[in-house]
């Protein structure tokens, strides 16, 4: 919605989202990094990170995020998700060095979390800022 004038959103919303924003970030990374100790994991933490994009869109609906960059990062992380288990898990490296099993779990959680977070963020932003051919028809 490029024609939305910034600043017309309610002050309450802006203050509350601004106050909650760092805590959402913290909660997302907590859920990702403690995925193998407490409930949570890559997908859940990633969707919490994606909700940061949503919060930003609700308060400041201006298209200044380049979704192409986010999508490129997501593709890189997807290739890492496909490569890391193939090299580490399926060849038996993790089973041979039991000391690093926790590190492997955390690494996979971080990879999946970033991939899901950027992916859902791209999806939501693309949908919210969709300017199709329908815009030229006025009624």
């Amino acid at each position: 919605m490029s024609d939305t004038n910034v600043g017309s959103e309610s002050t309450i919303l802006r203050l509350i989202v601004g106050l909650l924003y760092p805590f959402m970030l913290l909660f997302g990374f907590y859920v990702i990094l403690n995925g193998h100790y407490t409930p949570g994991g890559g997908f859940q933490g990633g969707s919490v990170l994606a909700s940061l994009f949503v919060a930003r869109y609700v308060v400041y609906p201006v298209e200044d995020t380049d979704t192409e960059v986010l999508h490129a990062i997501q593709r890189v992380f997807l290739s890492l998700i496909l490569i890391a288990p193939t090299v580490l898990l399926f060849t038996g490296l993790v089973a041979r060095f039991p000391h690093y099993r926790g590190l492997y779990l955390t690494t996979m959680d971080v990879l999946i979390g970033v991939q899901v977070g950027f992916g859902l963020g791209v999806a939501v932003l693309r949908f919210a800022f969709f300017q199709g051919v329908g815009k030229t028809w006025r009624l």
Binding site: V31, P39, G40, G41, F43, Q44, S47, V48, A50, S51, V54, Y57, V58, L120, V124, F127, A128
Partner: peptide, 17 residues
């Protein structure tokens, strides 16, 4: 785990969509 995912996706992202 499902509760976290449902709360974030179901009532956050999908509502905005």
């Amino acid at each position: 785990e499902l509760a976290i995912a449902e709360a974030v996706i179901g009532s956050g992202l999908v509502t905005l969509l």
